[in-house]
Design a binder for these strands. Structure first.
Lengths: 221, 221
DNA sequence: CGGGATTTTGATTCCAATCAAGTCCGGTGG
DNA sequence: CCACCGGACTTGATTGGAATCAAAATCCCG
């Protein structure tokens, strides 16, 4: 599995913010490419840059001592990631599939934000929406059954990546499992069960066709 | 259980931000008191105000259709809550114990932030740290055992509320359970187990004495 | 001292993890 | 073109940990 299709026509939630960086001064940031599974930055490293996804999908995650991995979020085209308070990375970022990002220096931001009130407003709304997304992730992880988690994930990803009934997953089952706090087997079983129940169809491993959206939404509780 | 002691000498993480609201123009906000379990605002309501905790503890939470409750966060003196993007409350806020808060109009903020760049900077750092805390909550909820969750919670609460080895809980077992995605029985059992293992001592229901901090930290993984 | 809520403890059940084979690809080389 | 290979995914059998169901103990307050 090297060349996984990774189309993300994505109308990212944070595109508004991204806009001002990308549009106004393209020379401000440097374009970088990463092949699948390449690390973009590591947990614990110095946080000099933040990034905007141009194409592809990026995961931010944390590794525990015992080898467990928890995925914090998936970022698609237009999303900003790697912008946190603190000089040290609280989590790593990796390319889920081949992808292109733009890196911006964090330290430039401080100065700019002070002068440009529009920018600082956008920054604030970025942070707010980041807060909101982290919150929603928490709710997915709370006392919910495997079905609720998987259904919730599918709906969230469908919204994030596109809006028709054909969902194309950029990430592996393991990624999904690590995002939902489940095992790969449970994710697989749950998807199979949803297919058996005619909620979804799985024409190929990474393609999901939603047959019964209403039911899927009910299952997400 | 009406009058639960709720002392929070708390050097809240976000006190810096709170400062500018509280200090400079106290007349800006209105002081409000809430008795234990009183709702401060409801999920779905219009979000006109945001709040700063003066004393006591506030919980923000979400209610699911089937009656399950998930607690998003506990807020102590100095913390800001109820400041989210969107005009509608994504979650409710309730008084964990009798408490005092200051309410500020959200709409004034926009104008103010534009003029006062210092304020907008503080707002940003509030949002950032909110993002960070939501993320950490996610990590507590991910694939972790009951012991890891409870130990993690104790450490986080100890840091939030005070820093010596005697932790005083403001919240009920049910609150803790709903925060950690566990049942009240499991929380209780886990605490008992920690006591049996001489990691903590439970002189009273809401008082926890940490006997072996290192071990507790290990258990939190 | 009594009564109700909260918490603890115990017994059992159930869901998801673990352990263990299989199956399905996509890619490679004969 | 086909056999083979290896990784990702699926499926099956069993185990384990937390939920559930149920009851006792404790605390708080009148």
């Amino acid at each position: 599995m090297k060349t996984q299709s990774c189309t993300n026509p994505s109308l990212a939630r944070q595109a508004i913010l991204a806009h001002s960086f990308a549009g106004a001064e393209p020379q401000m940031g440097s374009v970088q490419n990463f092949v699948q599974d390449r690390e973009i930055f590591a947990q614990g490293a110095a946080a000099e840059y933040f990034y905007k996804v141009v194409s592809g999908v990026v995961r931010t995650c944390k590794f525990l001592v015992d080898g467990r991995r928890q995925i914090d979020a998936f970022h698609v085209a237009g999303d900003i990631f790697g912008l946190e308070p603190g000089a040290e990375r609280p989590l790593s970022a990796e390319a889920v599939c081949d992808c292109t990002v733009i890196a911006y220096r964090k330290n430039r931001l401080d100065g700019m934000a002070v002068h440009d009130k529009n920018l600082s407003w956008e920054l604030l709304s970025f942070a707010m929406s980041g807060m909101e997304q982290a919150r929603e992730h928490s709710f997915l992880l709370g006392r919910r059954s495997a079905v609720e988690k998987v259904a919730g994930f599918l709906l969230a990803w469908a919204e994030k990546s596109q809006r028709d009934s054909m969902i194309s997953l950029a990430m592996s089952r393991q990624d999904i499992a690590d995002y939902l706090g489940l095992t790969i087997e449970t994710v697989s079983r749950t998807l199979s069960q949803l297919e058996r129940d005619n909620v979804i169809d799985l024409p190929s491993v990474r393609q999901i066709h939603v047959l019964n959206l209403e039911l899927l939404e009910d299952l997400a509780a």
